[in-house]
Design a protein around this nucleic acid. Structure first.
Lengths: 195, 195
DNA sequence: TGCATTTGTCAACGACCGTTGGCATATGGC
DNA sequence: GCCATATGCCAACGGTCGTTGACAAATGCA
């Protein structure tokens, strides 16, 4: 067997480069065209490699998608957030995640395929259950953290859909300041506003 | 040529029934599994008919999808809406569209496929440009109606995604009253709130 | 009853898909 | 240089897809 999946500390071997190229091409294409709209052959062509190699490095298309669709929102630690600025904090982090240089296209990959691919949908539900909900739960009564996190998610997810996937012109045209000033208060009310 | 597409006033002929059955099956499946996830053979099986008939009645899968993806939000006429209750009016109509018995699955069809099918995306942009925007434009300064309609759309589209497509549990659990009380004020502010 | 038109079934086509196994080439330790 | 291994290409498989054309059954008018 020729796979040593877990960290062998030193080995930037030849294969690791192509492996990374394949994964990068896959993340790009999955983010842009979704799971069904991206073929193994497309990924291979983008990585300048034979389709068979994609299968050799990742065992199947499903496994490749799973490797490509990892998301870490890196939301601010629970106690660092100012309760009175949680709305602004969330929307600022949102813009970094979707437009900042550091973050990859992980969320785009999930959101693009979540409507027609159950694995992506489940993964997206996990993100909001394990990464968004805890932040809200730490800032307000944990009893209705689910309700509040759900409302926050609906606004953020809708904004992402309109701005980055559907590319609704007036939403694309919004400046960062406009988004912060308009959506920030909404999130603030959803997260910690009156019951 | 055997198609008389435009109203021949009296003819509930045999074919019109199967034609309707095919369209109904298509709307159901497109709404549930999206464009790429629904095959002509699936539609035919659901309509208890041969796949070739689907092509004979509608000329191609694209044309079938176009016929299935018609949407009329039937938003209240421009001057009937109370400016101070436009948020509540919009969210109530939203719930009727998505859960009421009268409205079909038109929006679900569009939203389900909009992330991976450019035709559906364009159609959805049309809906918000031709049906949502005018309502907002009539209620506030038409100059920034685009911005306001975009914000309204982001919230409504996100709520639909979370509740009906992604089925995020805490959002599914929301009662109609909770939705109206929480999302209504958001839409009110987006539509006519302070600049 | 005859016959033309409609309505439906069946088999097959070419294309694309994910995936596989065999075979060539390059690499790197001995 | 020798050879095991890693890396890569190629051709093909079985399957599903949208779509087509030929043919059978039903329908309705003369």
């Amino acid at each position: 067997m020729a796979f040593m999946t877990e960290n062998p500390p030193k080995k930037p071997s030849k294969s690791d480069r192509t492996r990374a190229q394949i994964l990068e091409a896959a993340r790009l294409l999955f983010a842009e065209h979704g799971y069904e709209g991206t073929s193994i052959r497309d990924v291979a062509a983008h990585a300048s490699i034979d389709p068979a190699m994609v299968i050799r490095y990742f065992r199947s298309k499903d496994e490749l998608f799973a490797r490509a669709a990892v998301v870490d929102l890196k939301l601010p630690a629970l106690r660092v957030i100012d309760r009175n600025a949680i709305g602004e904090t969330l929307i600022r982090r949102f813009l970094e995640i979707w437009e900042g240089p550091a973050s990859g296209p992980g969320m785009a990959i999930l959101l693009r395929s979540a409507t027609s691919n159950e694995f992506a949908a489940e993964k997206l539900r996990d993100v909001f259950g394990n990464q968004v909900r805890p932040v809200i739960a730490a800032a307000a009564d944990p009893a209705d953290a689910g309700r509040r996190a759900g409302l926050v998610s609906s606004q953020l997810l809708g904004l992402a859909m309109c701005r980055y996937l559907l590319r609704l012109p007036p939403v694309v045209a919004l400046s960062h300041d406009e988004i912060i000033q308009n959506v920030g208060p909404t999130l603030q009310r959803y997260a910690v506003g009156e019951a």
